[in-house]
Write a protein that binds this DNA or RNA. Structure first.
Ligand SMILES: [Mg+2]
Ligand SMILES: [Mg+2]
Ligand SMILES: [Mg+2]
Lengths: 232, 232, 232
DNA sequence: GTACGGCCACATTTAAATGGGTTCGGA
DNA sequence: CTCCGAACCCATTTAAATGTGGCCGTA
């Protein structure tokens, strides 16, 4: 089996689990007037462990510690094949499909660097889709499927690092196969480009400082005088 | 009345409204296994409008458009005194008090610059506190109060601009009175300092690039070879 | 040397560089889809820096930071003559010559105002032309040339500001010499005219509003009456 | 001659926690 | 004097949307 075939196999087996979880639990009592990503992830994490307890391909599944807000994975598991165990990290992404578009943060580059340096590589995104209902939310299909999965290594080359130190990509950007080495080089390029842009941005902001300060002081003088008179 | 007395009056009247809202609705059916800020804010926004319809001091209250994710205020209203109307922006902050600590983002500096340039100034933070319950969440007191309010202009001088282009401050940082002009200068200083730090950070990151790339390629060579052999 | 002769010299030297870049790289592995313009520009930016490293007339050439989508220039350089250095901004425009026509946005007027206020003036457009091929695209000649260059200051007076706050001109509009002062006046006129057109548009829309309201109320009166009767 | 539409890569903005590094005082 | 703990000052990280401006083309 080639590496590529191995990767496809992992995603195939993962998708089966996720689709089953969703199909058997189409509605959740989670209020979703705003974005419900964290609550949905919390629920999925628990279910993922439950649904892989007895799975031939996955071993040692764990959800992120309850209440943790900075864990590098939502769930982790080991894919078992011919006695080999390959560490898999999972990041759930829950999209409210009534929104116009979405470009979620997809994690800090730092954790990816650590993951690879520790001898691992596989970080899977699992997209799920929902709509608010009267008493919570329901999962819905997008493009005929309850879930969409790909590995970070095969992410669309339109991904970038943003100023929050998060990688980011559009919800619809199609994944594209590349080798692990190609991904490493691409990732490092993207990080470099982003830092270069940031230096530009900060330099520009610094140049504008004095002008903005003047303007604010002037606007305030006027409005504060006004208020002072009115409340005498 | 001095400006300072005016400001204290606004906050006093605001606090009465908020405390009443909470006291009359101590429990909410909003799941809060993770952080429920957005859902709580959504609910408070609606209640704030409802509870100020018949208030002598507040006029024209509005909640943020439903589902909006980038609105500069959670609610806005006008404080009316002797015929003068003063624009007030409200940003709710909902803290899960079982957490160890909190340093919330408190908004982009850009919107503050716009607010002041448009002749306004008053941007109030309203802290509320909650705990998860079996079927949702309940509001709780912190330091004997259901809410804590202060204006951005009087924020603790420990606030900063972070790389997400958000101002930020610790939940417990005590507010300190200053003049409007003093605030403008302080704000602009903080923005400057932050951009200077960012340039440093990005420069350092750029220097490390090549080293990290080498390291990653090396780690990958090892782990990829390993995997290739195992799955043959 | 007159200002006019100076300007002609700059463009002449620029054209030599660009034509050389293209002649030596007639085909590019860039697929000619909607983003082709941006990608061709990326490539040209890099080449421009490379091809002016050892040029007697250009110094300090830079491409826009990679991935930056809002940079005011695609490339910048300094034209050196008798020790004087003149800042030159470059905006590449890549046209697919199989298309019927093109009226590209040519930049926001805001950046031109800034450029001039900072003591500079020269903003060159460099038109290049391409066709799709099986494995990417190839540069082609239009009117016997691989490139067409002119300064914004000499742009056809058919240029305008469009409602997106971008200047715009037809691909084929011939440039016409004018003085820097004449350009400033013309630019400001164009901006004014554009805003006036927009006011017209809004005024018309507002007028229509009332008309539409009438119409709707009338239509509804009829259908509501109708329904009321039917369900009595 | 002008508006406008689609595309799309990026920053920005919104929700609030943890955690790292430095500094300072006390044992 | 030195280690340790607490405090403090920040970045970082997590949840996913919208908005801007440049890209050219068509109408
Ligand atoms: Mg996730
Ligand atoms: Mg808020
Ligand atoms: Mg261009």
């Amino acid at each position: 089996m080639t590496i590529k075939e191995f990767e496809e196999l992992v995603l195939e087996k993962l998708k089966i689990v996720v689709d089953q979880i969703i199909t058997e639990n189409l509605e959740l009592p989670i209020s979703a007037k705003s974005r419900a990503g964290a609550e949905i992830s919390d629920w999925l994490e628990e279910k993922f462990v439950e649904y892989t307890i007895d799975n031939d391909f996955f071993e040692g599944s764990e959800g992120a510690p309850k209440g943790s807000t900075k864990n590098p994975w939502d769930a982790r598991t080991e894919f078992v094949l011919d006695g080999h165990k390959e560490e898999i990290w999972i990041d759930f992404k829950a999209f409210k499909i009534t929104s116009a578009d979405s470009n979620p943060d997809i994690g800090t580059p730092n954790k990816i660097i650590k993951l690879i340096n520790e001898g691992n590589f596989y970080h899977a995104f699992i997209h799920v889709f929902y709509e608010a209902t009267d008493n919570g939310l329901k999962f819905v299909k997008l493009n005929d499927s309850y879930s969409k999965l790909y590995f970070l290594k095969d992410i669309s080359s339109t991904f970038r690092r943003n100023p929050k130190n998060q990688l980011q990509v559009n919800i619809s950007a199609p994944s594209e196969y590349r080798t692990r080495e190609e991904f490493i080089k691409l990732l490092m390029d993207k990080i470099k480009e982003s830092h270069q842009r940031q230096i530009e941005i900060s330099n520009k902001a610094l140049k504008k400082q004095d002008e903005i300060t003047e303007e604010l002081l002037k606007a305030n003088k006027k409005s504060e005088d006004d208020l002072t008179k009115k409340i005498q």
